[in-house]
Simulated scan of single mutants.
Amino acid sequence: MHIHAEALLFDNDGTLVSSLASVDRCWTRWAGEYGITAEQFGRIELHGRPAVEIAADLLPAGIVPEAVARIETLEVEDVPNGGVELLPGTRAFLDALPADRWAVVTSATRRLAEARLDAVGILPKTLVCADDITRGKPDPEPYLLAARQLGVDPARCVVFEDAPAGLQAGRAAGMTTVALATTHQAHELDADLVVKDLSALSALVTATGVEISVRG
């Protein structure tokens, strides 16, 4: 299968990097600090959603801003503790791309996203974070904003995601979607293409964009 794109838009956590161990540590501690029971916590989907939305599902509105600031601090401080690592294929795939043809689009705050990306040496020219939007994934706003910043028609963008909410956002934006089965089972992911991770793909830069292919 070959996919042609003018711009490639990547989720970060679970797509480019793995932060699952850090997320588990930090959110478990956070839940304990705010008196959230294991039963309450277990019903919430953490992955691929902005922290403010998760906190709003669990806590009274009046303490949500404080609680969001707290989880951000916990996660940023955990980065040096081995809180993030590159997923297979990330470095080689990104190195094959021109800097102005790709962006990172994450549900994390800018402070947290930059901490995680800096830890693994990824320096995107374009970075869309929770701070930049009013509606997070699965709303298409984050991906539409990235397309505007890159100056590319959404229909000519490809979204790389590991979470159902992010894939839904990409589809709603009118973009081609590629799912990476890094945090969910393949059958849970609705996308134009599903692969295990970026090591399964190759990118060839052409005069008109980027040709994405599944490795044989």
Score class of each variant (00 low, 15 high):
residue 8 L to S: 03
residue 11 D to H: 11
residue 13 D to R: 05
residue 13 D to K: 07
residue 13 D to C: 08
residue 18 S to P: 04
residue 20 L to N: 01
residue 21 A to T: 15
residue 22 S to E: 08
residue 26 C to L: 10
residue 27 W to N: 04
residue 28 T to M: 00
residue 38 A to H: 11
residue 39 E to V: 14
residue 39 E to S: 13
residue 40 Q to V: 13
residue 47 H to W: 15
residue 48 G to C: 12
residue 50 P to W: 08
residue 53 E to N: 09
residue 53 E to T: 03
residue 56 A to I: 06
residue 56 A to F: 13
residue 57 D to Y: 15
residue 57 D to T: 14
residue 57 D to I: 15
residue 58 L to G: 02
residue 59 L to W: 14
residue 60 P to R: 01
residue 61 A to C: 02
residue 62 G to K: 15
residue 62 G to M: 12
residue 63 I to H: 06
residue 64 V to P: 03
residue 65 P to I: 14
residue 67 A to Q: 06
residue 68 V to C: 03
residue 68 V to A: 06
residue 71 I to Y: 08
residue 71 I to P: 00
residue 77 E to I: 13
residue 77 E to T: 10
residue 79 V to A: 09
residue 84 V to K: 03
residue 84 V to N: 03
residue 84 V to Y: 06
residue 85 E to D: 06
residue 87 L to H: 08
residue 88 P to D: 05
residue 89 G to L: 11
residue 89 G to E: 07
residue 90 T to G: 03
residue 90 T to C: 00
residue 91 R to D: 05
residue 92 A to W: 07
residue 93 F to V: 03
residue 96 A to H: 02
residue 97 L to T: 08
residue 98 P to F: 15
residue 99 A to D: 11
residue 102 W to L: 04
residue 103 A to W: 03
residue 112 L to I: 09
residue 112 L to N: 02
residue 114 E to M: 09
residue 116 R to P: 06
residue 116 R to H: 10
residue 118 D to G: 09
residue 118 D to H: 12
residue 119 A to G: 01
residue 120 V to H: 04
residue 121 G to E: 02
residue 124 P to T: 07
residue 131 D to A: 09
residue 134 T to Y: 14
residue 137 K to Q: 10
residue 142 P to E: 05
residue 143 Y to V: 09
residue 144 L to E: 04
residue 147 A to F: 14
residue 148 R to F: 14
residue 148 R to A: 15
residue 150 L to E: 00
residue 154 P to N: 07
residue 154 P to A: 13
residue 155 A to D: 02
residue 157 C to H: 09
residue 158 V to C: 04
residue 160 F to P: 02
residue 167 L to A: 08
residue 169 A to I: 10
residue 173 A to G: 13
residue 174 G to L: 07
residue 178 V to E: 01
residue 179 A to M: 10
residue 179 A to N: 05
residue 182 T to A: 05
residue 182 T to N: 02
residue 184 H to S: 06
residue 185 Q to K: 13
residue 188 E to Y: 13
residue 189 L to H: 05
residue 190 D to I: 11
residue 192 D to P: 09
residue 192 D to M: 14
residue 193 L to H: 11
residue 194 V to K: 05
residue 194 V to I: 14
residue 198 L to R: 08
residue 199 S to Y: 10
residue 200 A to E: 01
residue 203 A to K: 07
residue 208 T to L: 12
residue 208 T to W: 12
residue 209 G to V: 00
residue 213 S to E: 13
residue 213 S to D: 10
residue 216 G to M: 11
residue 216 G to S: 12
